[in-house]
Amino acid sequence: MQVSVYRYNPDVDEVPQMRDMSVDLPEGKDLMVLDVLELLKGQDPTLSYRRSCREGVCGSDGINMNGKNGLACITPVSEVVKRGKLVLRPLPGLPVVRDLVVDMTQFYRQFEKVQPYLINDQPPPAQERLQSPEQRAELDGLYECILCACCSTACPSFWWNPDKFIGPAGLLQAYRFLADSRDSATAERLSKLDDPFSVFRCRGIMNCVSVCPKGLNPTRAIGKIRSMLLHQGT
C-alpha cells in the first residue's frame, strides 16, 4: 500500500513535505492506522508521532487521515484509505513540532481556561458527597473526553481564533463542570464565558461531532452552555 506522510524535522528540513512510502500489509487482516505507522517506523526510525495506549483511551495519536481527524490506533485502514492510498498529516491548525507531532500548548491553554476542576466551597462531608444516578447521568457524554484534540483541530472557528475561542474540547469540559450537581461555581463559570469569543464563536458546523473518536457531542454541550447563559441573563 502507498502511504503519503507529512514529514518535517526542523533540524534538517527547510520546509515540510509529503513523502511517499510503501508498506506490505499482512493478508486478511485489517490493520489499524497506528499499526501502519509502526511498520513505517520500522523502515524509517526517524518518523515521529505520539502513541501510547494503542486502544483509544489515552488520546495521544490524534492525526489527520485522508482528510479526517481521528485516533490512529482505533481507525482501521480500510475505513480511511482512498483509492489504495493512505494520506497521513498532523492535526490541522496547530504548529507542527516534527512530522505528525503538533504543539498542543494552545489547546491545553484553552482547556485550562475553563477551570476544569470541581469548585465547591462547602467543607466536604466525612464520606462522599451524595449524587443521584440521574444527576450523575448528566455527566455522561462529557467526562469521557480524552483530550486528543481531534475536535478542536477540526473546527474552523478554532483555526481562526485558537487564542480566544475555547474550542469544542474545552467547552465540553466547561459544561462537564456546569452540569455537575456538586459544583457550586456556576455563576462564576458562566460569567467567564460571556464574551463574544469564548463560546459564541461556535457556528454549529459540527465537525467536532463528526470526528470525535469517543462519540461525544461538543456542539450539544455548547448549546447547553448558551441556554444556561440565556437563563442567567434573563
Binding site: Y117, L118, N120, P124, E128, R129, Q131, S132, P133, Q135, R136, L139, Y143, F177, D180, R182, D183
Partner: peptide, 8 residues
C-alpha cells in the same frame, strides 16, 4: 471530593 465522577 475532587470531583471524580463515580457511578452512583
Amino acid at each position: 471530593h475532587m470531583g471524580m465522577p463515580f457511578s452512583r
